[in-house]
């Protein structure tokens, strides 16, 4: 069965992510080969990350860090090889269990801070399953905004936020929709030192809860004991 078929997912609310039981989740990629513009950017890359572990992607510009993250998220179909999750909800595709944070923030300037993140929570599957229409505001939403220091800005249109605040708003969707695997592509771009520390804390909590983080970053995220995967060299296995 080919698991990297991200669009076949059934529509069901995501259960809150809790690593339970003796079965430990693993994100596994086998022998990934990806071509971009006629050039093999990834050539036989394999990796295996267990729940609670972080994997740092290293490599010079153009080494294929972004390509690997996008392939893991299912946005790029690899030429050969496959991505799968061991010990996860079988009926969900890999993409549906991943948060993909790319270079862009995926926020709408004309929606307010709260509306932006409320939408992603509802679309990607919020922590809160269903709530009565009058039971506003959503506590998970408020919590996520407070956590990222955006509490005072909840009714400000996102177009008026600074670059760093926009980035934090983009990262807030990690908190309103629980997903076990976080694929982070330079998540700390335009964040100040305090915000980087804040985000490092959020990542550490996710790992402590049994989550998986695969990140391409030049900033130390305080991921002590993280595995490293150096791209650019051929056939690297972790």
């Amino acid at each position: 069965m080919h698991v990297l078929c991200m669009y076949r997912g059934r529509q069901r609310p995501h259960p809150p992510f809790v690593q339970s039981g003796p079965l430990i989740m693993h994100l596994v990629a086998e022998n990934l080969t990806v071509q971009r513009g006629g050039r093999a950017v990834l050539d036989g890359v394999s990796l295996r990350v267990a729940g609670g572990e972080a994997l740092l992607l290293l490599g010079a510009n153009g080494a294929g860090k972004t390509t690997l993250l996008r392939t893991l998220a299912g946005l790029i179909r690899p030429l050969s090889g496959r991505v799968r999750i061991d010990g996860a909800v079988a009926e969900q595709s890999v993409g549906e269990q991943c948060h993909f944070v790319g270079h862009t923030n995926a926020i709408k300037p004309s929606l307010t801070t709260a509306e932006n993140i409320e939408f992603w929570g509802a679309y990607l599957g919020s922590v809160e399953p269903e709530r009565a229409p009058d039971a506003k505001p959503d506590p998970a939403l408020d919590w996520a905004l407070e956590r990222l220091g955006l509490g005072d800005l909840r009714d400000v249109p996102a177009g008026y936020l600074s670059a760093g605040q926009k980035r934090r708003l983009g990262l807030a969707r990690l908190l309103v929709a629980r997903r076990p695997i976080w694929l982070l592509d330079e998540p700390t771009v335009s964040l100040d030192a305090a915000s980087v520390a804040l985000f490092a804390g959020i990542v550490a909590e996710h790992l402590a809860g049994g989550g998986i983080v695969v990140a391409a970053t030049h900033v130390p995220l305080g991921l002590t004991g993280a595995h490293e995967l150096r791209l650019g060299a051929r056939t690297v296995t972790v």
Binding site: G74, G102, I107
Partner: peptide
């Protein structure tokens, strides 16, 4: 176009809703 430019399309693609 707007969703393509600001990266929303990629996040929409990882959602539970089929792209169709």
């Amino acid at each position: 176009e707007a969703d393509f430019e600001d990266g929303s399309l990629e996040v929409l693609a990882t959602g539970p809703l089929p792209l169709e």
